[in-house]
Each structure stands twice: as structure tokens, then as C-alpha cells.
Design a protein around this nucleic acid. Structure first.
Length: 550
RNA sequence: GCGCCAGUAGCUCAGUAGGAUAGAGCAGCAGCCUUCUAAGCUGCGGGUCAGGGGUUCGAAUCCCUUCUGGCGUGCCA
């Protein structure tokens, strides 16, 4: 907010001075407080094109900028930085603005309504969701919330791989468990089959519903039936897991449905028309190496079935047809070999492959008592998303998943997530919120809390700690734009901690509610209630609750 | 072998997209509750930003290279 004001002010001043400003300069917060509240490198960056010495340019700029009453002091420093020392009245007015705007104060129209499709989780519907899916869910959902807040028109989609090899294996696994249930000896459970306990539960459930009816069908009917049953059950299970995590999707797109609609054939014909397919060893290949992939890819296998790639490409094309101009896929750590062929297909079909953006989430390691929790998918020994959420709760889980940037491996400390003290950042932030609520309640009881605040109160707020809190709040709009633009939700966590730290410090140093000085109390109530609103907003964007009492 | 990601304090990680003296939490030590929630606060140490080169007024940040770790490299999805 303030940054933009300063930037605009500089631009106007440069214009009045008839100086060129073609190069990008920065306005930022210096890490040394002696250098003021903000500083700019404009004079240094623009010196060359204006054929002036940086310091001379800086001096001219300062002279022009001095007309603004919000600047307490302007100075040249170092090789030509201009340091801005702002007057308290600027911060006070900002507080009033934020108070008036409420929870919309940090919103913007930066996104200009651009239609963005966020695809995430998209797990195989062959088992419970794992913790990487949970990370993807938290990440994708929060990115969605922030993008929407800053003016994009985003949508969340889940692509269901309910056709193909893996679901066949699922049906076979279920059949084996079913036979087992009926006392048949099935020998050793096949290596590639699904070993998880949930398959046994599915078998029990189906058996309770239908008994031996299943075995009276023809083999093909039975497999279709088992497939359908398992898919609908597991999909519902996944949907519930996500719902418990406060993640809902705007669309669930089924691969099976896409295939039934004939889009697979369509994509194959597009690629053939584009002259980039060939036949080899009874299979049809896509010459993706022409478009930057490291090897050609099979589209249709020698047994006549289609690879995963084709319907997935078709799905991506439907996104474009539906008017999305930016397609963001959030993938797990094991998919980066897959992306070049998708991009290659975009290029082959004359779509701009820049539209397609892939975010890779790195893996999640669980730690308990300092030990890494070992998981084995084959033995069916995995910690699921539900296990995790049940153990540490939605708030802690979402917080921890969001606290690290996507490209970093995430070490999830289960004990830390459960701790209820200052070591646990989730509680640290929620506690700040509850604490403010408690103060407000106390003020109400003491009959100090006003129904509406009077603007004159802001003049009472001039302690450095108070101005620091206001300034932190003014950082939020810019931060949210940054989060959306660079797809970095983890910054919300850092921000929340910083804001809370400032508040806790303030709380320990100053008394907010003091019956002997009512106006000061009211002014401080205005301040902390605005902080509360600001914090609640950030927590809401993260999908974390803001409790009024703890 | 090739490709992608990462390497910052003892540990877990930030670092406002190239800025001035690199930050926080934890762990360690010493303090703060008859006053609005001590799930909090204050103070003290701690660094070859993996190593080396380059780009420029200026590099943890950009480029090249080496090392270390993770992942990928199916007619699986």
C-alpha cells in the first residue's frame, strides 16, 4: 500500500522534472531501520539514461518529493539511495483506511478476472489419499483462495483416473479379497496388486451388500461391476477426506467420461493431422522429440489400448476450450518426467505451451520423536491423509503444509504439530487471535469498547510498536499479490508469524484497556481489533480457523 | 549416464525477484505473571549463504562449473 503510494509519488515527481524513467527501480524496506521506513534505488538506476550523477538525480528528486507532508525526512545515502522517513500521520491514516475497508482491505483487481484452472490432488482413485496429496490439497486450495482474493477467476479441478490399467488392477485385487472372504485359498497376494487393508474392507462391504451374486456374473460383467463399486466407494472416501480438510473442488473430471465422449480419438486425430505420429512395433507413437522431449512417447500400445497420456492431454485441451488462459498443474515429486511430453503436445498442436504451468511439490517426510516414520506402500503400511488430519487436526496440518515453499522437501514433525506452546507456530498465531478477542471482551465488560470508533482516535497511536503493527498490516496487499503471482503460499505463514510476533510484543509492553485513560484505550482497541481482522483474513486464506477463545 | 529440485546458524527454515551490517523459531544460558489469556514476552551467544569462477556500482539471489542429497528417466499412472 505505502510502497505503491511512494512509487507513484516518485513517478509523478520524475515526470514534473521531465526525467526519463524507462528502467525498473525498486521501492523497498531497508533492513537497517536507520535507513528509514522505505528506500528506493531510483536515482542509481535512472542515472545513466538521464546522463546525471546518481547523487545529483537523487537531490533533484528529493526536492520535488518534499512537497508531500507524509514524509518526515528524506535523505540521500550510500551510492545514491533515497531513504524515506515517514510521518506517523501516514500510518495513522492507513490504519483508519484498513479499519474502514475491513476484510476486503487487502483485495485488489490485479488478476483482472483472468480465468485460471488449478488442477491438484488428482490422485488415482485406487486407495486413500496420502500425505503428499494432503500437501497438494492445502497448497492448491490456498493458492486458489489468494488468487480469487486478488482478482483472478480461478477454479479448482480434480482429474479422476478412473480408466486404464490401475483400476483394472484394483478390481482384480478386490476380487481376490472377495474370494478370500469366501474361504478360497488365493495363495500369495500378487506383487503389483493393492495390498492395503481398505481393499479388504471394500470386499466385506460388497459382500454384505450383495453376497455371492457377484460370482454369478460373467467374468467381464463382474470386473466391470467390481470396478464401478470400488471406484465409487474410494472416490467418495477421497472426497470426504478433502472435505474434512476444508478443500472442495469446483469440478471433478472423469477420465472414463472423457473417453466415452470420444475426445481420445479426437486428440489422436489432431496429432495425426499435425503430422507428428508414426507406427512402430504395432504401437502408435508421438514424435515428441521434435518438440523438446528426450524420447518419443507411445500413444496407443501394441495391445490397442491407450496410454495415460492421451486422455490427460485431451483433458488439458478441454481446459483451453472452456476458456482458461492459464493452466496450472500441481504435481507430486514423481511426475517431472511427464511434463515435457505434455508441453510437446501443446507445441505440436500449435497451442502456446507457456499457458501450461507446472508446480512440483516435493515429498513429505513424517517425523516422530526425531525418527523418520517409515512407510511401505507394498506392505500397505502408509500414513494416510485421514490418519494425519485425525492426529494433528486440520489447522495444524494445513499450516505445516503451507509453511514450506513447494520446491522444498517438507519435514513434518508430528509431535511439534501437537504441541500447545510457542514452539508450535499454529498455536502461536491462533493464540494471538484469541488473545485479542479476550481483550475486546474485557473492554466490553468494562464499558470502554465504543460502538463505533471516532477517527480522531488515530492520533493517539504514535508508539513505535503501534506504527510497526500498522505498517505490517499495510504490507499485506502487496504480499498477497506476490503470493498469487509467484505461487508461493508459504509466505502467508511467515507473514502471520511476523504479525503475531509484533502483537505479542505489543501486548506484553502496553496495556490496552485502562479505565483511567479511556481515549487511549479506545485508540488501542481500534488498533488491535484491526490487527485481529487482518490476522483472521490471513488465517482464512490459509484455511485455518481463528478461534476466539483458547 | 542424462534430466528436474534442493544445499543459508547445532536443528527446522525465512530472506520482500539484484540492494546497504544475511534474519526468525527451536535447542543453551539469564530474567518477566496481586494488572487485558505465561499457548506470551525480554536479554545473551552463534554464519566461508556447499566450493570455485564470472556478470556490475552492488550477488544468498543471475550465468558457468564442481561436490553432496532427493526424485525422475515404463507400451505404469
Amino acid at each position: 500500500m505505502i510502497k505503491e503510494i511512494i512509487r507513484q509519488n516518485i513517478a509523478e515527481t520524475l515526470q514534473t522534472l521531465e526525467l526519463s524513467q524507462d528502467r525498473e527501480y525498486t521501492v523497498e524496506v531497508p533492513n537497517n531501520p536507520d535507513f528509514g521506513d522505505f528506500s528506493t534505488n531510483a536515482a542509481m538506476v535512472l542515472a545513466k539514461e538521464n546522463k546525471m550523477a546518481p547523487k545529483a538525480l537523487a537531490e533533484a528528486l528529493i526536492k520535488g518529493l518534499k512537497k508531500n507532508k507524509f514524509y518526515k525526512k528524506l535523505e540521500i545515502a550510500g551510492p545514491g539511495f533515497i531513504n524515506f522517513h515517514l510521518s506517523p500521520s501516514l500510518f495513522q491514516n492507513m490504519l483508519w483506511y484498513i479499519h474502514e475497508q475491513g476484510a476486503q482491505y487487502a483485495a485488489s483487481d490485479m488478476g483482472k478476472g483472468e480465468k485460471i484452472l488449478l488442477e491438484f490432488v488428482s490422485a488415482n482413485p485406487t486407495g486413500p489419499l496420502n500425505i503428499v496429496s494432503a500437501r497438494a490439497a492445502a497448497f492448491g486450495d490456498t493458492l486458489y483462495r489468494v488468487m480469487k482474493y486478488v482478482g483472478f477467476d480461478p477454479a479448482r479441478e480434480f482429474y479422476i483416473n478412473d480408466a486404464g490399467n490401475q483400476v483394472d488392477i484394483l478390481a482384480e485385487s478386490l476380487e481376490l479379497r472377495l474370494r478370500e472372504l469366501h474361504g478360497e485359498r488365493i495363495g500369495e497376494f500378487p506383487f503389483e496388486a493393492y495390498h492395503g487393508e481398505y481393499v479388504k474392507h471394500l470386499a466385506q462391504r460388497l459382500n454384505a451388500l450383495e453376497g455371492v451374486k457377484v460370482f454369478m456374473m460373467t467374468e467381464k460383467d463382474r470386473m466391470d461391476h467390481l470396478k464401478e463399486f470400488a471406484l465409487s466407494e474410494l472416490l467418495e472416501m477421497q472426497r470426504l477426506s478433502l472435505e474434512k480438510f476444508d478443500v472442495v473442488f469446483d469440478g471433478w473430471v472423469s477420465e472414463k467420461t472423457l473417453r466415452a465422449e470420444g475426445v481420445v480419438e479426437e486428440v489422436l486425430s489432431y496429432l495425426t493431422e499435425a503430422n507428428c505420429t508414426y507406427e512402430k512395433e504395432d504401437a502408435i507413437w508421438f514424435r515428441s522429440t521434435d518438440y523438446g522431449d528426450d524420447k518419443d512417447r507411445v500413444l496407443m500400445k501394441s495391445d490397442g489400448s491407450i496410454t495415460y497420456f492421451v486422455p490427460d492431454l485431451a483433458y488439458h485441451l478441454t481446459k483451453i476450450q472452456r476458456g482458461y488462459t492459464s493452466l496450472i498443474d500441481i504435481f507430486g515429486p514423481d511426475h517431472h518426467g511427464y511434463v515435457p511430453r505434455l508441453k510437446a503436445a501443446f507445441k505440436a498442436l500449435k497451442y502456446d505451451d507457456e499457458m501450461l504451468e507446472i508446480i512440483y511439490l516435493q515429498q513429505v517426510n513424517l517425523f516422530e520423536s526425531g525418527e523418520r516414520v517409515k512407510m511401505s506402500k507394498r506392505a500397505g503400511k502408509i500414513v494416510t491423509m485421514d490418519d494425519l488430519v485425525n492426529e494433528v487436526g486440520k489447522d495444524a496440518a494445513r499450516y505445516f503444509f503451507l509453511a514450506r515453499k513447494a520446491s522444498a522437501h517438507l519435514n513434518f514433525d508430528l509431535e511439534l504439530a501437537l504441541q500447545q506452546n510457542n514452539e508450535n507456530p499454529v498455536y502461536y498465531c491462533q493464540y494471538a487471535h484469541a488473545r485479542i478477542c479476550s481483550i475486546v471482551k474485557k473492554a466490553k465488560k468494562d464499558r470502554i469498547l465504543p460502538k463505533t470508533y471516532k477517527k480522531e482516535l488515530i492520533q493517539k497511536l504514535n508508539k513505535p510498536e503501534e506504527l510497526a503493527l500498522i505498517r505490517k498490516m499495510t504490507d499485506l496487499p502487496g504480499l498477497l499479490e506476490m503470493v498469487a503471482l509467484h505461487r508461493e503460499p508459504h509466505r502467508l505463514a511467515t507473514y502471520a508469524e511476523e504479525l503475531c510476533s509484533l502483537f505479542h510484543r505489543y501486548y506484553n509492553k502496553f496495556q490496552v484497556v485502562n479505565p483511567r485513560s479511556k481515549d487511549l484505550s479506545k485508540a488501542r482497541l481500534l488498533l488491535i481489533d484491526t490487527v485481529r481482522m487482518s490476522l483472521a483474513l490471513v488465517l482464512d486464506l490459509m484455511g485455518i480457523s481463528a478461534p476466539e477463545k483458547m
